[in-house]
Structures are given as structure tokens and as C-alpha cells.
Simulated assay, not measured.
Amino acid sequence: MIFIKVIVSIILIIGIINPRLSWKISEGWKFKGVEPSTLYLIMTRVMSVVMLIVVWLAIPN
């Protein structure tokens, strides 16, 4: 279980540090020449922080 937490944490930290990369991986490949909105980038960062807290505090080892 700890291995899964670490992998998920790495993905979420990427979302916190570089939400644009997260967008390119999840949605950007579907469109050509489109950039995410500022609101989307902010919400991705906020949700990544929330999910990181949930993963480490709410899910038992």
C-alpha cells in the first residue's frame, strides 16, 4: 500500500509543481494548438494539494 501512496504522491506533486504538464498528459493530447485556462491550472494545483493530503492522512497504511 505504501508503494501505491508513493506513486500517487509523485503524480500529485507533478500536478502541484507543473499543472500545465498534467494538463498536457490528461487533456492536451486531444487538442492541437490549445492552452489550458488560468482557472484550470489553479484548480488542478489546488485539487492536487487536497488529494495529496487525503492520500497521506485519510488512507490507512
Score class of each variant (00 low, 15 high):
I2G: 13
I2K: 13
F3S: 06
I4W: 02
V6H: 04
V6Q: 02
V6A: 10
I10Y: 06
L12I: 03
L12H: 04
I13A: 13
I13H: 07
I14D: 09
I14F: 12
I14S: 13
G15P: 07
G15K: 07
G15T: 04
I16N: 09
I16D: 09
I16T: 10
I16L: 11
N18E: 07
N18D: 13
P19H: 08
R20S: 10
R20A: 08
R20M: 06
L21S: 10
W23D: 00
W23R: 05
W23K: 01
K24L: 05
S26N: 12
S26Y: 08
E27K: 15
E27P: 00
W29H: 11
W29T: 04
W29R: 07
F31C: 01
F31H: 09
K32N: 08
P36E: 01
P36I: 01
P36R: 02
S37C: 03
S37E: 09
T38E: 12
L41G: 06
I42W: 12
I42V: 15
M43N: 15
M43P: 02
T44F: 01
V46G: 06
M47Y: 14
V49E: 09
L52H: 08
L52T: 05
I53F: 14
I53R: 04
I53T: 12
V55P: 05
W56V: 00
P60S: 05
P60N: 07
P60Y: 06
